[in-house]
Design a protein around this nucleic acid. Structure first.
Lengths: 350, 350
DNA sequence: ATAAGTTCGTAGTACGTTATACACTTCTTA
DNA sequence: TAAGAAGTGTATAACGTACTACGAACTTAT
């Protein structure tokens, strides 16, 4: 009985011995490096198969590539994040790369620790979804590992970015509502205390809303409710609107989940949507398409954004250094929560 | 200028030199092993902090623990999977372990490759969510790495499992419908060709349905539609039901997403839910709670299941070998898609 | 004072892989 | 035909950490 058979995992040394070549040769075959004849390649590959050899990533990571990238995400509950991740995964798979998803939890600290950890684990590159750090921090990070930032409007020379054109997306929404005849359009904003980063999607969207309102001559009608982009945040915003003497005819909730919240409040208050109030979301998550809900929203094609990010990352891993900042155009998906406003109790003119 | 300052990442050798001790001593401090004086410990830790040293997981993984576990999941779109993952993550975090999520994609082959890859990457343990393999394959796998299986009714001596009591869950649904006065209750089954595994949740649920029907003396009314647990599958099942001359008064869709499909079909066909048809889901995913939808369903508390799985895995990593197979009890969440049947067009008795 | 522990610290090697440097053939080309 | 060039394989030094053995210093028991 040979000593290989002793239940241990086969190493590249075992493969080389089995094939009767040097370990260096076996290694070359493994990473199909230059300088190996077809015969030798066949022989070594046969031995690998015979022994059931698989390279050990930990050992591999000490010298060269890991063939793995990671995406850091705060939270997997967000359906849109899942879409982005799936997009990255598909692209990674196409290029024989592994994608690992790293749920960091909320908070900048947790996120930073996770990123460090991934570097320590020898990831070849990292995608960050809507990261919290400052530009300077991202720059520094990008100098230690190939980096792509997803869902944040960046223009760095050290990393790539992919983002939806949130400004234009917000424009589409306002245009749609105005074309239906709305004038009093309320926007639900997402505010995080402390962070005040003009590059975050929420900041860009609110600017898009303001800009579009002004463009339509509705500067006086600008109305922004500070809340959170969550079910609860949407419900609170809805409640705030209901308590007004003079209600808007349409609400742009900023994101789909918040739109759910607004919708819930209206449902409970027996306010008819879209007759008494039009509601628009953002993201086009699956649930918005369900027949009983059918929310008008903005589609960002998360799958494409993810795939684009994956592609850029792997290019960067492959050696590209010129930065690419790409922006994908969102589209409006008109459904059943928007309609022309009913001009019932019109505000008296002075 | 010292040669440490040359932009390179500090290693344990740098730390040792900085502290004026041997690398072995530094290593001991790092893993707080036996045989290190308080002074030395303080000195080395100071050097680590000063140099910003972080151990390299890849190198570490070649010898001992990685302090990381992974969860393999086919698909992150499934909202319930996200809940499970979050549960595991929280438990892992509590115990200072890293959780990485590995989206395998669909198919048994892809899943197996992913698992091998994770082993190669030196994961300390693995959680599998509703794995596709046979019992024998899982046993084999469990012998090479600590393993916990989630969402599959197993009883192995080599790995742990956590599953909801799907049999009882199905019973709760039928009991609820029968107590409302329903007798003709249709079940939407999830069928995967090839796999016929009695331990899968779908198989257990259908047995629970059949058993409960018989227990209520409704054996003759048993009606199972073979479909898929997806939006489309639910829609198809709904269409099939609509085409019947003699329709059931209630549909148990097997899972929430399928219930959405049934609901969509009924909505489009202007069938009033729950008046003309009651619908029940399973999983209690967030969307079911939305006011305009409000589906009656069964809650499995995914967060708890995930946390339980995480706990078991880390125990196993820590050395436990006796298997634990735990089952969590689901609860019925009655909402607005179930009501007493309207006895309008009653089938004539012979 | 000496033997027998303890406690603290170090040398050195193993882990599995990559990759550089080099030697030996065989093919081109002037 | 000599001199390079291209092709093919090997020896071996890293990579950063863990850990076994072992020695030195310091206590304690006799």
């Amino acid at each position: 009985m040979s000593k290989d058979a002793a239940g241990k995992r086969p190493t590249i040394v075992d493969v080389a011995r089995h094939a009767g070549v040097s370990t260096a040769a076996a290694s070359k075959v493994l990473r199909n490096a230059y300088g190996v004849s077809p015969q030798m390649k066949a022989k070594v590959q046969a031995s690998m198969k015979a022994l059931g050899y698989r390279p050990l990533a930990s050992a591999r990571g000490m010298r060269g590539r890991t063939q793995a990238v990671a995406v850091v995400v705060a939270d997997l509950h967000n359906e849109f994040s899942s879409l982005l991740v799936e997009g990255i995964r598909q692209e990674a798979e196409r290029q024989k790369y592994r994608l690992l998803v790293a749920p960091a939890g909320s908070g900048k600290e947790a996120q930073n620790r996770m990123v460090e950890d991934l570097i320590d684990r020898g990831m070849d590159g990292i995608v960050l979804i809507s990261p919290l750090g400052t530009d300077a921090e991202l720059e520094t990070l990008a100098r230690s590992i190939p980096l792509v930032v997803l869902g944040r409007h960046a223009s760095s020379s050290d990393y790539d970015s992919v983002a939806a054109d949130d400004f234009n997306g917000a424009n589409l929404v306002v245009d749609h509502l105005v074309s239906l005849g709305h004038r009093r359009i309320t926007y639900v904003n997402h505010t995080t205390e402390g962070t005040n980063d003009a590059r975050l999607p929420e900041e860009v969207r609110v600017r898009g809303y303001v800009d579009a309102m002004i463009r339509h001559g509705l500067g006086d009608a600008i109305d922004i409710i500070q809340s959170q982009w969550s079910q609860e945040g949407g419900e609170q915003a809805g409640t705030a609107i209901l308590s007004r003497a003079d209600r808007p005819t349409a609400v742009f909730a900023g994101c789909d989940v918040a739109a759910f919240g607004v919708l819930t409040t209206m449902w409970n208050a027996r306010i008819s949507v879209p007759n008494e109030l039009s509601i628009v979301g953002f993201d086009n998550i699956f649930t918005t398409s369900l027949a009983p809900i059918s929310i008008t929203t903005v589609d960002q094609s998360g799958l494409d954004m993810g795939a684009a990010a994956g592609k850029l990352l792997l290019e960067r891993v492959g050696g590209r250094t010129e930065p690419v900042n790409s922006m994908v155009q969102p589209t409006l998906v008109a459904r059943n929560t928007t309609a022309a406003p009913v001009m019932a109790h019109r505000k008296r003119e002075p």
